[in-house]
Structures are given as C-alpha cells and as structure tokens.
Design a protein around this nucleic acid. Structure first.
Lengths: 159, 159
DNA sequence: GGGGCATGGTTGTCCCGACAAGTGCTTAGG
DNA sequence: CCTAAGCACTTGTCGGGACAACCATGCCCC
C-alpha cells in the first residue's frame, strides 16, 4: 500500500466537527418530531415531499429519490404511514408495475400541523446560528459534497 | 400558535442540501469500513479515539463523550469489540464504579491497518472536493452548529 | 410473439441504536 | 455511622434501516 496522504491539522479539525454534526443533528431532528408529532424525521420528510407535489401524489421511485432513500426503506415507511391514515397507495394508471403514493387529507393536516415546529427547530439549530454569508458558503460546500454523494442529483433543488 | 418564520429560498436550499449530506454521508463511511474492515463507522471511531489516548486507555464516560455517543450505546459496542479481541475492560483504580476501556495490541493493529483506507474515503468524499478556503469555512460553520448541539464541547478539538 | 433482460415494488431477516430499568459504588447530610 | 441521593455503568427489550430474495410488469428484438 502506498503512503496515505494524511490530513493537516486544519483539515482534521474541520472533519472531526463535520463528523460530530453528522452524528448529532439527526438525533435532534428526530427527537423533536418524535416528541411533537410522533413522527420520524424520515417519515416527516416523506409527508412533506408529498405535500409539495402536484395533486399530492408521487411515484414510489420518485419519492425515494427526493428523500435520499432506497425503495425497500421507503416501502416500509409508506406501509406504516398508510396504517396511520396519512398516505394511501394507488395503482399508477400509465404503468401497472408502478405505485403512486398519495397524501390523504389527514396526512395533509398532519404536515400543516407539524411543519412550523420543525422549521423552528431547523432555524434554531442551524440557520439562525449562521450569518447570511455562511448560509451561502454552506450551500456551496454541501453542493460540492453532493456532487460526489449523489451524482445523479436526484433531489432537484429548487432554483 | 404564532406565524412561523419561514425560510427564504436561499436558506431552504442550503438546508435541503445539508439534510441530504447528513443522510448520505454516514452510509458512505459505514459501507467503506464495513467492506474493508468489517467495522461500523462508530466502532472505528471508538478504536481510533482509544489509539490516540495515553496508554490507549479511556474511561467509558470520557470515551462516550469524545465519540458523541451515549453510555448504553458505547457499552454495547465495547462488548462487541471486546468479543473480537480489539478492546478489553479494566477496572479503574481510582473509582471502583468506573471502567477503563483499553485498546489491545490486536486493536492497535486493526486501527493501523484500517486508518489509511478510511482517510482516503474522507479525502475523496469531503476534503479533496473543497478549496482550502472552504475547509476553513466548513470548520467555522460546524463549530457554530456544535455550540448548540454540544454546548459542553465534550469533544475537545485539537488546536 | 416469445425468450431474455431490465424496471418497479414488496416482503423477510438480521443487526444496530434508543430507551428504560436495574446494580453496585460513592458522596453528602444529619 | 448510616441513610439518601447521585454517579458509572450494564442489561433487556423494542423499533427502524440495510440487505437480499422475490414477484410482477414492461421492453426489446430476433
């Protein structure tokens, strides 16, 4: 094996901190949503993405893509959300292999009720801690990382 | 409920990207380590932190702190690592409630063998994708977030 | 128009992490 | 002292996610 290019002190520090954030942030999001809405962060994400879609419908594959997820994982989650009445599965008219996930009225109201608290958490734990300039920097940096993590750019970020 | 302060388009974009990275990055780290060393990212972190400590020993509480973890979680992981011969538990001389985790020689060699591949992954998926300036920005931004996520600053970052 | 292959989704199993109790030690208070 | 409160873990149970195997439909193309 060839000698590994080690990290400089500066790089190491940035990495350790990113590591810590990546570890701790999901826990905060999950616990707030769990406490206030009995939802996983991922479950909330599914509902939220559906609520933003035309007719509140999305194909499973598309939904998996926008939520950075795999199909098996999504399928399980949709089953749970279906059991709670927030989502229903409909056959896709065009393609009989496909399934459409549809946000029910109850699901819509769940999102409406849950979103403010979630946004507050995001603000207080991320956005409000940064300057306007830092938000821009963060966006650029994450975009650079995503180019590697998600080359297909499945989650089409809004303009 | 009062009107939630919504996010601007810029802020939302940055948040969605950070969300995606936080979701996808752990999977990359885990799968590389799993494939090359049959270790979880968290297991590797435990071994790595021990390897950096004097005498390769750390109290469970201290180890939990530097790995951004909880004591129950750590206890389970140490049990697994102990079963594989990488770590051993020793009674703490000063306080008979406490337990010291000690990295064995086998554990040390495991870290030495595993570190280069891990560093390569960190480089290729994070550090090398950013300019020097961006690394500094990232460090500052993550430091700001950690002040909220981890007020005690348990993980004492090196100079 | 029928093999062969890709696509879209579901189901089943295993393992890791969260959470909640429980045990033994230590310290403080009267 | 001796009891009560607090600390440092450990253990047990439960739920969610990864992965692999599986079915069904669509597409090709000869």
């Amino acid at each position: 094996m060839d000698a590994p290019r080690w990290l400089s002190a500066e790089q190491l520090r940035a990495w350790i901190r990113l590591e810590a954030v990546v570890e701790l942030l999901p826990a905060v999001l999950d616990s707030q949503l769990q406490r206030d809405a009995a939802l996983t962060h991922f479950e909330y994400l599914v509902l939220a993405k559906l609520s933003e879609s035309p007719d509140r419908v999305l194909r499973m594959t598309a939904l998996a893509a926008t939520t950075n997820s795999t199909l098996p994982r999504l399928s399980h989650v949709v089953s749970r959300l279906e059991a709670r009445g927030y989502v229903e599965r409909l056959p896709c008219p065009g393609d009989r292999r496909a399934t459409n996930a549809h946000l029910t009225d109850a699901g819509w109201e769940k999102v409406v009720a849950t979103a403010p608290g979630h946004v507050d958490t995001v603000r207080s734990h991320v956005i409000d801690l940064l300057t306007e300039e830092q938000v821009t920097q963060l966006d650029d940096i994450m975009a650079a990382l995503l180019q590697k993590l998600d080359p297909e750019n499945t989650l089409r970020v809004l303009p």
